[in-house]
Design a protein around this nucleic acid. Structure first.
Length: 566
RNA sequence: GCGCUUGUAGCUCAGCAGGAUAGAGCGACCGCCUCCUAAGCGGUAGGUCAUCGGUUCGAUUCCGAUCAAGCGCACCA
């Protein structure tokens, strides 16, 4: 039910047609505090039209409005404040949530259209860092929110599994590595070789020539190079999967850079056919000056292709394969220019669907104010952060709830939940400096706070099993106390929140919402005895159940689990 | 130099399409468990919303300029 409509109707009638409905609707706003009502109509704009003081206009409107559908309508200064009928609202909202369960908030915005999401995309032979976490959890959450609004997300892990770094890696492995070492601890050993390579090639530039030679061999299909490449790739993927399992993230495709090797010639010849390719300083470029962009480098002086060539091939492949209605790239904001170029080149090719490509940028994670760098060995290993978080969660459980069953499982849900939630609770674009204590905090505005609130509500429902709710219309869910009102208003706004989150590709909208809902319910919980056996018991249980349900669904949209007990 | 992003309490951040006393969390200080999980609830302290202009009845919110920070700016991805 649209409660704003009720207010518009009332105002339209009171104003006797002097203002159009759409103008009234646009003017209505949400008061800052619920003490000022649920909707407010400011009379300022009318002051000029009617040539009267807004305060007087407001009180006149208030006296004319049919109060029948509201608890109260009153003029406060230049505003007309509307207080909704709490009992009716409460009954409607709670019945709807209990009836719809986890599908509460579902809506059809996408008509089941395909949306590809380029996300995570770690580099083979390098560990997954906190930077990849951002892309992974933001992409994962956007996928879930898209699904809830009836899009069909396709999660693509565009692995960095090709490029000159493999030449370096093979050379480093041949120089310093052994098979036994790599097998024992693949990612860390491979990283060690890689970092050492970059240290030593400063003084021994000839190493770079060797590396280039190895990459050339790899491209030409040299058996040893290919064997090593395949081996590095599969070992890396194995260890990536362990982390993705911890995070609970799955992918629909692992087609990475190597996958597009044989698909770039077509891109180049397309560009040639359209006469877009020019030579500049020995390289092949597409001029983008009419877009106010730097030229896109398609081929290097030595004829080798570049990043954008591969992404062009990937974009075209995805359009052909999935016929997407949107194509998202969850990639750090430092690559903004790259995606502008990508879209511009596609546009030049006459591909109108380039407008459906959206770069979803996010802010940088730094450590001690410095940018993370694999080459410099300055990395924060996601796996270690997750393990730390789980260990800390376990410790917390031993202190606070030592009798809990499934301690290990809950510790994992809480620890991992804390890390994911921390990443999603703020706007994507904000930079943040990594602080382990902050990431694994369990108090205040954190994932575990929301999980805890959910667990508390579930605990109440367990204790009231003898009075289990039927959800039938005959049950009365009419609450009208001030304490529950904020909770009810928040519950009602869930679908609007989902809508906003999907429009802005912004999981933080959902995370913030879950914090608000949890906070308002905790307040209610502290002031109201839910299990008191009186005539409103059923209604209060319906509220607790609705809160648990919406909190769980909010967390699910973020990719965070909601344990029943913790 | 050009482009993108950001600038709100000591720290981390909210503030949705401009509107009624600018809100949380953390940190500090002080309260609340014979009562549904205290991973909780409440209180106190703390802000010229970077600066200056403009639009408007009204600007933290929109526009412009300035200052500051981060990130980019052709043969890495």
């Amino acid at each position: 039910m649209n409660y704003k409509e009720i207010v518009v109707d009332a105002l339209y009638a009171a104003l006797e047609g002097q203002l159009e409905r759409s103008i009234i609707e646009d003017a209505i706003e949400n008061p800052k505090s619920l003490a000022l009502g649920d909707f407010a109509f400011p009379a300022f704009p009318l002051a000029r039209i009617f040539k009267r003081a807004p305060q007087i206009i407001a009180s006149e409107i208030a006296s004319k409005v049919d109060q029948g559908n509201f608890d109260k309508v009153q003029a406060v200064g230049p505003y007309v404040n509307f207080f909704l009928d709490k009992k009716a609202f409460s009954n409607d909202v709670l019945h709807q949530i209990l009836a719809e369960g986890s599908s509460y908030g579902d809506q059809d915005l996408g008509n089941n259209g395909n949306v590809t999401i380029d996300m995570s995309s770690p580099n083979i032979a390098k560990p997954i860092s906190m930077g990849h976490l951002r892309s992974t959890v933001i992409g994962n959450s956007i996928a879930k929110i898209l699904e809830k609004t009836n899009y069909h997300p396709i999660k693509i892990n565009h692995l960095g599994d090709w490029g000159t770094q493999f030449g370096k890696l093979i050379e480093a492995y041949k120089l310093w590595g052994t098979e036994e070492e790599v097998k024992a601890d693949p990612i860390n050993k491979l990283l060690e070789y890689y970092v050492r390579f970059h240290k030593e090639d400063v003084e021994h530039p000839e190493l770079d020539d060797e590396a280039r030679a190895w990459f050339k061999k790899l491209e030409d299909g040299d058996p040893e190079a290919v064997r090593l490449w395949k081996w590095f790739r599969s070992e890396s993927l194995k260890s990536f999967m362990k982390i993705y399992n911890k995070l609970g993230v799955e992918f629909d495709s692992f087609n990475g850079e190597a996958f597009y090797n044989d698909k770039m010639d077509e891109v180049v010849s397309l560009l040639e056919q359209k006469k877009l390719l020019q030579e500049s300083r020995g390289a092949q470029i597409v001029d983008l000056s009419k877009y106010d962009l730097n030229p896109a480098l398609i081929k290097k002086t030595d004829g080798a292709t570049l990043y954008i060539t591969r992404d062009l091939a990937a974009a075209i492949y995805r359009k052909r394969t999935y016929n997407f209605v949107q194509s998202l790239y969850v990639v750090g904001n430092e690559q903004t220019n790259h995606f502008k170029q990508l879209k511009a080149v596609l546009k030049e090719l006459g591909e109108e669907w380039s407008d459906d490509i959206h770069h979803i940028p996010f802010g940088l994670i730094t450590q001690g104010g410095k940018k993370l760098s694999t080459r410099a060995g300055r990395v924060i290993l996601l796996d270690e952060v997750l393990d730390d978080a789980m260990t800390l969660a376990k410790k917390q459980i031993e202190e606070k709830n030592p009798d809990l069953k499934n301690k290990e499982k809950v510790a994992k849900q809480v620890g991992v939940g804390a890390v994911i939630f921390h990443d999603l609770k703020n706007e994507r674009m904000n930079n943040f400096d990594f602080d382990l204590d902050e990431v694994v905090r369990f108090e205040g505005e954190t994932g575990p706070y929301v999980q805890y609130t959910h667990a508390r509500a579930m605990s109440i429902l367990r204790k009231s099993e003898d009075k289990a709710l039927s959800g039938g219309k005959e049950e009365n869910y009419q609450l009208d106390d001030e304490e529950s009102w904020e909770v009810l208003r928040l519950l009602e706004s869930f679908s609007m929140i989902v809508k906003r989150a999907v429009k802005e590709y912004e999981p933080s909208v959902v995370a913030k919402y879950s914090l608000h809902l949890a906070k308002s319910f905790n307040k209610y919980y502290a002031h109201t005895k839910i299990l008191k056996n009186d005539e409103q018991l059923t209604a209060r249980l319906a509220l607790a159940k609705s809160v648990a349900s919406v909190l769980k669904e909010s967390l699910r949209l973020l990719g965070v689990q909601a344990p029943e007990e913790m």
